[in-house]
């Protein structure tokens, strides 16, 4: 028996003014999939992820969540976002709240849970990312890696069905990348459905179940990570991988 897809991106196009960023993008995500979206800067991968979270409105095409379109008029974007979480490159932790409040804000204000329940939930996920001792700290007092782990806990506290990661380690020092990737590996192993825009080739190769390579707003090549990394079929892909392996 095959599972129903959880997310379907169909003929998606997006342009800012005259600049076309996404051209006819198609792919499908099944529950439990870890999809790595690769590509050089400006290839449209972040915009794609932002479209999926409705932070950007696509000009054409459709995104379906559990078979229902979310890009048409009359979709409740807020309700949808409670089920599809997002982790940003620049963390975007609420700087007027401490770590615990950051993780409780969603469950209390949006999901209307009691404070006790939200607190227990926040602590559970903060524990999972190893940030439970820091509940009283303010975001400005944390390192980049710590902030990103809190941001992941904040997204997890909503208990979403899908988590989107927009270059979660790109703003971090090399020594902090590891701690965030470790958290993400554990998440993937627990069966979370994840879409990850990343430049971490090792992560994409070892953790993902499918790899999507974008160039000039199109999907240039996609497939299982083994085949993608060992025998890429497109010249653009080979060029891209060669550049990364050389580093």
């Amino acid at each position: 028996m095959t599972l129903e897809p959880i997310l379907e991106v169909c003929h998606l196009s997006k342009s800012f003014g005259t600049h076309q960023v996404l051209r006819d993008v198609n792919f499908t995500v099944h529950p439990g999939d870890v999809t790595s979206i690769l590509g050089s800067s400006g290839s449209g991968k972040s915009t794609l992820l932002r479209c999926i979270n409705l932070l950007e409105r696509p000009n054409q095409g459709e995104i379906r969540f559990h078979g229902r379109s979310i890009t048409g008029r009359g979709t409740d974007a807020s309700a949808y976002r409670t089920r599809v979480g997002m982790v940003f490159q620049s963390f975007n932790l609420f700087s007027n709240m401490n770590v615990l409040e950051n993780c409780m804000a969603g469950p209390v204000k949006v999901l209307r849970r009691s404070r006790e329940e939200a607190r227990a939930r926040a602590l559970r996920y903060l524990e999972q990312v190893g940030m439970a001792p820091y509940i009283n700290a303010r975001p400005r007092q944390l390192s980049g890696g710590q902030k990103q782990r809190v941001a992941i806990a904040r997204a997890l506290a909503m208990e979403p069905e899908v988590l989107l990661f927009d270059e979660p380690t790109s703003a971090l020092d090399p020594e902090m990348v590891g701690e965030v990737l470790a958290v993400m590996r554990a998440l993937a192993a627990s069966g979370m459905t994840m879409l990850v825009v990343t430049h971490e080739m090792a992560f994409a190769r070892d953790v993902s179940s499918q790899v999507v390579f974008m160039a000039d707003g199109r999907i240039c090549e996609s497939g299982a990570p083994d085949a993608f990394f060992s025998s890429p079929s497109q010249p653009r892909t080979r060029e891209f991988l060669a550049r990364f392996m050389a580093q």
């Binding site: 976002r81 700087s95 804000a105 909503m158």
Partner: peptide, 18 residues
Amino acid sequence: VDPGQTEGAKAIGMSHVQ
């Protein structure tokens, strides 16, 4: 206020007023 704060809030499902 950094626009990232608004995006962070929206991403956990907050409405404009929230």
